[in-house]
């Protein structure tokens, strides 16, 4: 069977094709999750936003103007719903390069099934990155990798800022890894 395009899947799902819909969920669930997790919601809020995003897509299946840009639409919708939940809860989001509260943003290595010390080190270093860097890197490693315009939509930042921010966040991650190695 040929690999169907996103546009074909959206059309088929709009007509009620469950298999096509399942394939869309399979393709884009990691991206939606990355956007939601990048906003540091509680587990219950994250679940709500994830679910709401897919329900919104069902509502709009027949009305999407550019189904080939689904990753951008999903990113923008998941961001919009995440911000709505954050505003309802009146929570503040700090915004610096290194987190004030190391370890709070990601599960610690003790909760993971680790193959190697290196993977544990990456997990710890990632958890010490700023919220903004974590959000960006989560998106960049989503499979399939979203376009920069989808990343911009997910984070509410100009597309032109993504490359430089990516570089800065990767340098910060490398610095944290080096520090851990040095202190080990």
């Amino acid at each position: 069977m040929p690999y169907p395009s996103t546009t074909d899947l959206v059309r088929a799902a709009a007509g009620g094709d469950q298999q096509a819909w399942n394939e869309l969920v399979e393709r884009y669930k990691r991206l939606v999750w990355a956007v939601v997790r990048g906003h540091r919601l509680s587990p219950a809020d994250a679940a709500d936003v994830f679910q709401t995003t897919w329900l919104r897509l069902v509502e709009h299946l027949g009305r999407l103007r550019e189904p080939e840009h689904l990753s951008g639409w999903l990113s923008a919708t998941a961001r919009h719903e995440s911000l709505r939940v954050l505003r309802l809860g009146h929570r503040e989001r700090p915004d610096e390069n290194i987190a004030d509260d190391p370890g709070a943003a990601a599960p610690g290595p003790e909760s993971a099934l680790l193959d190697t010390e290196e993977r544990a080190a990456v997990a710890v270093a990632f958890s010490r990155l700023s919220e903004r860097c974590q959000a960006l890197l989560r998106l960049l490693v989503a499979d399939p990798a979203p376009s920069y315009s989808a990343v911009g939509a997910a984070l509410g930042v100009p597309v032109g800022s993504i490359g430089p921010t990516r570089g800065r966040c990767l340098r910060a991650l490398r610095r944290l890894l080096d520090e851990q190695t040095a202190s080990a």
């Binding site: 993971a112 099934l113 993977r119 997990a123 989560r138 991650l173 490398r174």
Partner: peptide, 15 residues
Amino acid sequence: LLEALGAVLDEIDPV
């Protein structure tokens, strides 16, 4: 580095 991070996140924070 991004590939390593992707593998770690899939492991510690999957959908």
